[in-house]
């Protein structure tokens, strides 16, 4: 079950995320749940598969904002790297490993 403790154990910077939610725990958990269902994860995967770096960048950029704000560090960190890798590029090099890591962390979080 998604709880403050399980998120903390997962590696999220819970204190930071909670502060942004005015320390409203249930609100924070609700947003985290919503974030894990964000359609941008799906868009990112599809765009990468199709080699569409622009669409991939847009999705990654959006995810960077929300996971950053919720301090979901295990997802946020590879997303930051991916965003920089894709920025202004027509071709993604060495991006697959990062995408895999993101999806892996996403699944892990969903199991909480």
């Amino acid at each position: 079950m998604l709880t403050i403790d399980s998120l903390r154990a997962y590696g999220a910077n819970v204190n930071e995320g909670l502060t942004r939610c005015m320390n409203n725990e249930s609100f924070y958990l609700m947003l985290v749940g919503k974030s894990l269902e964000d359609r941008n994860f799906e868009k990112l995967r599809e765009a990468m598969a199709a080699g569409n770096t622009t669409a991939a960048f847009d999705a990654a950029h959006a995810l960077k904002g929300s996971t950053g704000n919720l301090a979901l560090t295990p997802i946020y960190e590879p997303i930051c790297q991916l965003t920089e890798l894709l920025r202004g590029k027509s071709e993604a090099v060495n991006a697959d490993a990062l995408v895999d890591r993101i999806m892996e962390q996403l699944e892990k979080a969903k199991q909480l």
Partner: peptide, 16 residues
């Protein structure tokens, strides 16, 4: 803001 999470976060910060 198109990202619901970011929007909601700002919302809870501001609505007081």
């Amino acid at each position: 803001e198109d990202e619901a999470v970011n929007r909601d976060l700002l919302g809870i910060i501001l609505k007081g």
